[in-house]
Design a protein around this nucleic acid. Structure first.
Lengths: 183, 183, 183, 183
DNA sequence: AATGAATGAGGGTTCATTCAT
DNA sequence: CATGAATGAACCCTCATTCAT
């Protein structure tokens, strides 16, 4: 039986198996055994691809962020002006809602290394604000706030799905108000 | 030496010791031994006051929330109108900044029981918005967003202290815009 | 069932169990499980008395040395002059032969911390040489050599028991020659 | 690139790599990976030349002994009489000092198979004693003792370099006294 | 009310060895 | 001859919880 696979694929399969377990039971109960059994390999194989469990968690986080920003970028692409921001925000909320569980599990876990570690999503949003030439005093500050409003909105909708419509409406209002050309 | 103390005091001392260790090293590395040594009691004493470690963590969370809302209420008290909201927000940011580490450690930890579990701070903010008669379409939605903007701002300032002024300015702007009587 | 025992006794029992396993199979195959099973306690109990396996090995070495020098001292006590040295040497050989296996296992093992770490037996021998007023140019150097001659003799007898008599005779000759008042 | 090399050379390179790693970190931490990486070959190649790790360690020991006795023989060659013994001893000390670390690492390690296994160096010394016609009652016994005195002296000088001169003087004295034609 | 010795399940990591290519 | 991905048994150590005193 051909057991050898290209390195990238094995690594991916291990990440997939880990992600799936994390979604089921969280990081704390995640064991290397779980992962390797899930990926159909022996325990030692894990250490051929990751130096230890934290290394894998880091890889999981990187993969998450990469997927996220790439999706969001794609969704906002076609539009322009304030619409672009709105779409970016709304697609972000959408994506968060789909993945928020994984997000929180991965990023609100003590295994995450300390340190500032700036948020690529905030940076992307700031760039977008600049790009559309929004008439705002401080794009960075606005980006931070919008980003957290987006995140909080997604969270809230998850906890209270009934509030979905009103929350989306309010976020939209916030967007328009914050970015409206001051008259 | 009289080693017996009133139950409430022992319990408090254990909570204090635990909180102090959590602030130093996080929850994951917190052991019952740490706590009892910190409180100057034997290991078994812990189980006289808490049924298990998670029970203590829950008590720590309750104490945190109680302190927080009570402080914020006090700070906003004297003012009225939009000022009251602004004060509430700014004092919240202030307090978060002082305690955000403990907050995140306690509330972003997998030991926290799952489930919706509504946020008393958001409720308090909504009540405030209603109380001052803000002319907004959806006080609840606005409260959610303002709350997360507040939290995100505090987080960002912690990571990037240099941004303090601009962030506070932007949050103030947000408050005024969102709550401004629509003209 | 009264499971609690005085600390010193538990510690001793663990040392005994470990020593016994080491004598059977050497240090490399010694596991903490072996030790605790041998001592009739749970695994965790081991770590109540030793910080880790190396710590226990160190304790085993200390105990060995203490026993050794104390026995040797006792054997040499009654005599005086060159006789005292001879007795010390011969009792040392005797004891080595009884314990050489344990000695080598403990002291010729990589787990032993590096570093000079002077040999208490050599020191004791030097003191003895001085005490009896041996007419030798360099008591320290003579002590080193006699000590190793003793050790080597014991080793050789163990490997080749048939040589016992001749080896003891030669060591005795060596003693007398080295310490004889130069004429 | 032509990766194939004559068997003897590959084997030698593997031995060299292993010896070098042993000298740095000891046998316990020596891994087959270390060796093959050090020799610039793949892991599997190791098993083309040695049946397992212990096999390689045995080869390392054999090589060591071969080198040692051949060097010592060469050093003693030119002289005769007691001088020859003295030279043999002193060159032995010299060589031990240079290689004692490797010696101890290789020969005081549990991986060494058990059993009597007589010492070729002692045999060589006994032959030498007989050859020069030393007037001693028991050449074998004397050889054993001299050999261990030599080894112990080398050890001591390594631990306490300051004692070098006095130790060499004492060993010389011992040689002369032990071998001196009894008057 | 308080103690603290004892428990024992649980999991991360290492590494010699194999074997399909 | 040579490769190196894969295997999986083995073992140390942690720590929440119990319970006899």
């Amino acid at each position: 039986m051909a057991r050898t696979k290209p390195g990238e694929q094995r690594r991916s399969e291990l990440l997939d198996a880990a992600e799936s377990r994390v979604l089921q039971d969280g990081i704390d109960s995640l064991t290397v055994d779980d992962i390797t059994v899930g990926a159909g390999v022996a325990k030692g194989t894990f250490y051929l691809h990751f130096t230890n469990k934290d290394d894998l968690l880091g890889a999981l986080r990187d993969r998450y962020v990469q997927r996220f920003v790439s999706n969001q970028r794609q969704a906002a692409e076609p539009s322009g002006g304030v619409d672009k921001i709105e779409r970016w925000i709304l697609s972000g909320i959408d994506e968060y809602r789909r993945d928020v569980r994984l997000h929180d599990l991965l990023f609100h876990h003590p295994s995450r290394p300390e340190g500032p570690e700036d948020n690529p999503a905030v940076d992307a949003l700031r760039d977008l604000l600049v790009e559309i030439g929004a008439t705002i005093p401080d794009p960075t500050a606005t980006a931070v706030i919008l980003y957290h409003a987006m995140h909080g909105t997604a969270d809230h909708i998850l906890h209270t799905p009934a509030d979905e419509d009103r929350m989306l409406a309010e976020v939209t209002r916030l967007c328009r108000i914050l970015l409206a050309p001051a008259t």
